[in-house]
Design a protein around this nucleic acid. Structure first.
Length: 320
DNA sequence: CATCCGTGGAC
DNA sequence: TGTCCAAGGAT
């Protein structure tokens, strides 16, 4: 596509000068590390991954084989605090499916659990130089503005992504677009005057108009009773099944308050689509529950959600 | 196509 | 405090 040659040149020059070249996953071609970064960064801020997860996780799991050799629980533990824990379970499944090495094409990568089209393209491009565009939140916002799209289907956005794509320098193009979206073409106050694509941008007169903001339904509040059963120094926990916090250990929850027990505090937490307001009770008995008992020290090696970590903190205060 | 799936920072 | 949102994918 000759049409965007000048804009591509400006984009690359902007990226050379302002890009985040020090990001650790840009300083490696190790497919596993690139893959891990793409999974960690799904719906997660760069700063969070950079500061709290990248180093510790790689120290514990330096290779794809080391992930495959671990239990799911161990991988979840290393993922603790990052959220969207299905990512960690898919990572574990993928590691076991791959037997040491990731496939080298986007088509094969996309067949693996937890890897969709955009992530497959990202890994294939960044690790194996396959010339394919990505379509993350940054690129999507740029495309909405560049082509003045109020709203667009995924199909239309992929088409737009392919149109603006620079197949001649796929690695730098994709990285540059993500940086541009994160640093210049931002959601709230885009700096169009600093944008290397401004001359071709159909939306630059009113960038805030694109994309049209999605109506967010209010999230419901779920009131829950959180039950703490002690057996000596040990606490009764259950392992979540299903997709919500699947594989993570939690204090049991009920809708109804216990008939007897002592209230020791409150916790609240907002998830992606609901909020929990929990009353924490110390109870003496808890029928019909598949409990396993762990001391607070043993809990440190279990994968627990942020809410259950808050509950555990309350309980430890009570036990002193 | 709509809904589900966490967390914490910015404002 | 409430709201938005950040390198998406599975169902």
């Amino acid at each position: 596509m000759k049409r965007y040659e000048t804009l591509h040149d400006r984009l690359h020059e902007w990226y050379r000068r302002h890009g985040r070249h020090d990001l650790p996953w840009r300083r490696t071609r190790d497919p596993y590390r690139i893959y891990l970064s793409e999974i960690m960064l799904q719906q997660t801020r760069v700063e969070t991954v950079l500061e709290r997860y990248w180093g510790p996780f790689l120290e514990r799991f330096p290779t794809l084989s080391s992930v495959a050799a671990a239990t799911e629980g161990e991988v979840l533990k290393a993922w603790e605090g990052l959220g969207y824990y299905n990512r960690a379970r898919y990572l574990h499944r993928t590691a076991r499916l791959c037997d040491g090495a990731l496939p080298r094409s986007a088509a094969e990568l996309e067949k693996l659990p937890g890897i969709g089209r955009s992530t497959a393209h990202a890994i294939a491009c960044f690790a194996f130089d396959e010339p394919l565009p990505i379509l993350d939140a940054n690129v999507r916002r740029i495309l909405h503005r560049f082509f003045a799209l109020d709203e667009a289907t995924p199909s239309r956005l992929w088409e737009a992504a392919g149109e603006l794509f620079d197949a001649g320098r796929p690695y730098d193009y994709n990285q540059a677009m993500m940086d541009l979206g994160a640093m210049v073409c931002t959601p709230k106050a885009p700096e169009c005057s600093a944008c290397p694509l401004r001359e071709g941008c159909a939306g630059r007169e009113d960038p805030q108009r694109y994309p049209r903001p999605r109506k967010r339904p209010g999230i419901p509040v779920r009131k829950r009773q959180i039950l703490v059963l002690r057996r000596g120094d040990a606490l009764g926990l259950v392992r979540n099944e299903g997709r919500f916090l699947g594989g993570m250990w939690s204090f049991p929850q009920r809708i109804e308050a216990p008939r007897s027990g002592r209230k020791i505090g409150k916790v609240r937490r907002t998830y992606s689509h609901f909020r929990i307001e929990g009353s924490v009770w110390e109870v003496k008995e808890l029928p019909d529950e598949k409990l396993r008992f762990f001391t607070p020290a043993e809990c440190e090696s279990l994968a627990m959600s942020a809410l259950d970590r808050d509950v555990l903190k309350l309980v430890k205060k009570e036990m002193q």
